Each structure stands twice: as C-alpha cells, then as structure tokens.
Simulated scan of single mutants.
Amino acid sequence: MTDDDIRRILTTTRTIALVGWSPKPERPSNGVARFLAGQGYRVIPVNPGQAGQQALGTTVRASLSEIDEQVDMVDIFRRSEEVLPVVQEALTLPGVKTIWMQLGVVNEEAAALARVKGLDVVMNRCPAIEIPRLGI
C-alpha cells in the first residue's frame, strides 16, 4: 500500500465503522475514534458490550450488521486472529470500500478475502498517524 493509496482512501472515505471501540478514554480505539470524528469523518462505534449507548453523536452498534447506512471503511481494533469474522461480516455491507486493520493487526487470510471482493486493505497502520503524516 503506497502513500498515494493511503491518501486516496483517507480523502474519499466519509463514514467509518470502528470495530472494537472502547468507551474508556485511555484506550487507543477511543482516541482514534475521537480523532477521526474531529477530522470530519462520521464514526460509528461497534462494540457489543456497549450497544445502545450514545458515543460520537451516534448509537453504538453491537455488530456491523446493525448498521443501516453506507459505510466506506471498517476500521478494526481486534486481535489479528479475530479479524476474519469481522471482515466476513463487513463484506455483507453494501458499498464498503476499505478494510483497515490497526497497528499490530495483520490477518493475511482476511486481507485476501477482502481483496478478492475488490476492497482496499490496509494492515498494521493507524489513520490517526497517517492523516497528519500525509498532511491530509
């Protein structure tokens, strides 16, 4: 994935489903979600333990399948071995364009599945690092 690819993804994405969001401010998923929302992205938190609560101006969803609007990117804060089912569920969403696996998250099987379906895949990177680095 080149810098131009990352730039294209981050400048065309509008809505991000953030899987593994935590309500705890000290958790990376919380900080990244707040950063992305502050950059103008619509962030939909996904966490079954927090479902129904309000965060980032929307309702926390238990799963991706509960989202009833266009999602451009699925940003995954889960252990690498837990990514495949998330990607399989993401592929049922209409219009999803990108699977983004956070720092330390790599799952080649899930990435290959998403690529076969025509999605962009970013692994082991964080949009909250890439946006300032690329000057987006």
Rank of each mutant, 00 (worst) to 15 (best):
V74Q: 01
T11N: 11
L10F: 04
Q88L: 13
K117P: 07
Q53A: 14
E89L: 08
E130W: 00
A33W: 02
G40Y: 03
L91I: 05
A51F: 07
S22A: 08
E108F: 09
N47W: 01
R79P: 08
E108H: 13
E89Q: 12
E26G: 14
T92Q: 15
V87P: 00
V46H: 05
A90K: 00
L119I: 07
V87S: 03
M123N: 02
L18V: 08
G49Q: 15
F35M: 13
R7Y: 07
I136T: 09
V86I: 12
Q54L: 13
Q50P: 08
D75T: 07
Y41L: 05
N107K: 09
A112F: 14
A128Y: 05
M123F: 08
T13V: 07
Q54I: 14
L103C: 11
Q102C: 04
G40M: 02
M1G: 11
L93K: 06
R27T: 12
Q70Y: 11
W21E: 08
P94F: 09
A112G: 11
S22C: 04
S65Q: 15
R42P: 02
G104V: 05
L64E: 00
R34Q: 13
T92I: 12
P94K: 14
A62R: 07
G49R: 15
G52R: 11
A111K: 02
P132V: 10
R79G: 11
T11W: 08
A33S: 11
E69H: 04
E81C: 10
M101N: 01
G20A: 10
V96K: 00
I76N: 01
V60P: 00
P45H: 06
G57Y: 04
V60R: 02
L119Y: 11
L103I: 12
G31W: 08
K97Q: 12
V19Y: 03
V74G: 00
T92A: 13
L103W: 06
A111S: 12
M73H: 09
M73Y: 03
V106Q: 12
M101C: 06
P85W: 04
G31L: 14
D72Q: 00
D68V: 10
I44S: 03
T58A: 00
I9L: 06
E130A: 12
I129Y: 13
N47H: 11
E109A: 14
R78V: 05
N107Q: 10
K97R: 12
T98P: 07
I67H: 04
T11Q: 10
Q70V: 09
A110G: 05
E89C: 09
A128S: 10
I16M: 05
G31N: 10
L134S: 03
T12M: 10
T2Q: 13
E81N: 13
G20N: 06
P127V: 06
P25W: 13
